[in-house]
């Protein structure tokens, strides 16, 4: 029976990720006094792209392999994820370090695709993407590590639900602020959409991608976005645990929707930073996150 929850995980994520993307686009449009596309537009985009011709400028296997690798890595992460406070059959087989590395693998796939495409703009994007990964991954890691240190275990569900057993302290509050500040970078939204930067380097890593390959990358980005929103809900807002799976699931989906509202408001009201400015911002976040972990060791 436990295996059912894996299927639910996948269905919820694969089914709702484009919807949340649609919400972001709608809200952004409203903020900018535009009509905006219908909320189901991202579904249409994916369907359309899947049928389009692939244009291959690279002529090597890395270029074709990369989108599938990116998609597969985020789907793997989702399979291990204890959505709705329910550890599924697979959760016990991995730990938080595995999750972090699997997320990184998705990033590597984007870089592989960009570098394989030979396009100069893609490589500029890849260089920026890698820098962003290096600088924000520690924040993600420390969010999870804080739970691990408290619980003396690296188990996925144990760390993610640590607040349930040890409560909210100053360290958690600080980490929450840091996570929210890093969220835009996790999901690649303004002011940290530096590696795609449509207006400046034309989607950077994805410039040469088209058709189904691009559909996979787009889907990957939406799923990743939803994962980070869901992780926030899971780690920092664990209060509404009713014990009934369906209710938990519904509550969490609503909460994820709220996080997306936050993402789109920040995204639509901020201008993009330069990569060198962003590095300084990230380094402050890293130091703050380290402080939070330090505080949590002392039980604060």
């Amino acid at each position: 029976m436990e295996a059912v929850y894996i299927i639910v995980n996948l269905l919820v994520f694969l089914g709702l990720a484009p919807l949340f993307e649609g919400i972001i686009r709608k809200i952004t449009a409203k903020v900018q006094s535009r009509q905006g596309p219908p909320i189901y537009q991202p579904y249409m985009d994916i369907f359309k792209l899947l049928g389009k011709t692939t244009i291959n400028s690279a002529d090597n296997w890395g270029f074709k392999f990369a989108p599938m690798m990116a998609f597969a890595s985020i789907v793997s992460v989702i399979a291990f994820f204890p959505l709705a406070n329910k550890a599924n059959y697979l959760t016990q087989y991995a730990d938080i370090i595995t999750i972090i590395y699997l997320l990184t693998l998705g990033g590597i796939a984007v870089l592989l695709g960009a570098l394989s495409s030979k396009n100069t703009y893609a490589m500029i994007g890849a260089s920026r993407e890698m820098i962003t990964m290096i600088m924000v991954e520690p924040v993600l890691a420390m969010t999870l590590i804080m739970g691990a240190v408290k619980m003396k275990s690296l188990g996925i569900d144990i760390t993610m639900f640590s607040i349930n057993s040890v409560g909210y302290g100053w360290s958690v509050a600080l980490m929450l602020v840091v996570y929210l500040a890093a969220l835009q970078a996790f999901v690649g939204r303004p002011p940290f959409d530096i590696s795609e930067a449509e207006i400046e380097i034309l989607e950077g890593p994805f410039i040469e991608y088209s058709g189904p390959n691009y559909a996979l990358f787009k889907y990957y980005m939406m799923l990743k976005q939803m994962f980070y929103a869901a992780l926030f809900v899971m780690v920092f807002i664990p209060f509404l645990n009713t014990g009934i799976y369906i209710v938990n699931l519904a509550v969490q989906i609503v909460e994820i929707g709220v996080v997306f509202g936050f993402i789109s408001l920040i995204g639509s009201t901020n201008a993009r930073l330069r990569i060198d400015q962003a590095i300084k911002f990230y380094s402050v976040l890293i130091v703050l996150a380290l402080c939070a972990v330090g505080l949590s060791v002392y039980g604060i």
Partner: peptide, 11 residues
């Protein structure tokens, strides 16, 4: 998913 819609490829 990639092959679901029978997309063709050109260089």
């Amino acid at each position: 998913l990639k092959n679901s819609a029978g997309s063709t490829e050109r260089k």
